[in-house]
């Protein structure tokens, strides 16, 4: 979808031409994106959170995760010294929340990347090689699509050892089928365009067509899809951590919720322990969803999403 035909300008070489065309498309994309208030808000939140994650060591210091040097008493309510209170070891919850940003974002991004990468690969090849390969692959995809994702992820997380990578893997390999489906549909429509025919006639091989023609054309869709998958991935990470299937030695938002529950925060009324990590998860998931929807409606205004 996206890039339209180029206005035939003075020929500055095909590469530069393509580059200029892409720059123009990006600028137009941004202009349209800006019109969606929700999308801009989501993006702003994401930029802010990304900055917090990157600056975590500067903001709260590396020592804030240490239990032996914990500055506060156990489970102190919010105060001037500890704006969000302390956990059961006396560590500042605000500091832990900031550290957790890194893990949750990393897992979310990696898992989404893995999921979308698998989905794109499967989708493009299935769309391109239409014969038995495409059929078989799509059968497998359909089958994965109907598997209960959470159940499968829980099962995988149980089967493998507890680590960050397990979580990434469990999410990645269970969420790709939707992407594969979307990408395949898009691939089919791109490949029916005349210029692909031309390229093939000129001797373009499978690899050439898929990587040079199809991939750039499905990228915008993939981008939108990635944003949405990240939101799902962050929630799934929190869910797995909450069920005790994450790496307990790493501070993540879901892990904080699990710690809070283990410490008995729910029945002791320690809301300050429970509320912030959940809110953080919801905010980030929502921000990614908003961005994803905006990207999608910019790319395909017919959808009427969020108009």
């Amino acid at each position: 979808m996206t890039t339209t035909t180029t206005d035939t300008a003075r020929t500055p070489g095909p590469r530069a031409l393509a580059r200029a065309r892409r720059r123009r498309a990006a600028a137009r994309f941004w202009r349209q994106y800006r019109d969606h208030r929700a999308g801009v808000a989501g993006l702003a939140v994401l930029v802010l959170i990304a900055l917090v994650a990157l600056a975590a060591p500067l903001l709260v210091g590396a020592g804030s995760q240490s239990v032996t040097d914990a500055p506060g008493g156990p489970l102190e309510p919010p105060s001037g010294a500890f704006p969000l209170g302390t956990d059961q070891f006396g560590r500042s919850l605000l500091a832990l929340l900031v550290w957790g940003t890194r893990v949750s974002l990393t897992v979310g991004l990696l898992a989404a990347f893995l999921s979308v990468a698998i989905g794109t690969l499967v989708g493009i090849t299935a769309g391109h090689f239409k014969g038995w390969y495409g059929n078989v692959v799509m059968r497998v995809t359909d089958w994965f699509l109907v598997m209960p994702t959470l159940v499968l992820a829980i099962a995988l997380a149980t089967v493998l050892s507890r680590s960050l990578w397990t979580t990434v893997l469990a999410i990645g390999v269970t969420t790709w089928p939707t992407t594969a489906r979307l990408v395949r549909a898009q691939t089919l429509s791109v490949e029916s365009r005349p210029y692909i025919e031309r390229s093939r006639a000129l001797g373009g091989g499978h690899g050439h067509i898929m990587s040079r023609h199809v991939l750039p054309n499905v990228m915008p869709l993939v981008l939108a899809q990635t944003t949405l998958v990240i939101s799902t991935a962050i929630l799934t990470e929190a869910t797995l951590a909450f069920l005790g299937l994450g790496d307990p030695t790493i501070v993540s938002w879901g892990g904080l919720l699990q710690d809070a529950r283990e410490a008995g925060a729910v029945s002791s009324g320690n809301w300050w322990y429970l509320a912030p990590p959940g809110l953080a998860i919801a905010v980030v998931a929502l921000a990614f969803t908003l961005c994803g929807r905006t990207v999608e409606s910019v790319l395909n205004p017919r959808l009427g999403v969020n108009r």
Partner: peptide, 11 residues
Amino acid sequence: PDSTPALLTGA
């Protein structure tokens, strides 16, 4: 978390 993202995007 088991939601299918595509459904979320609506149409």
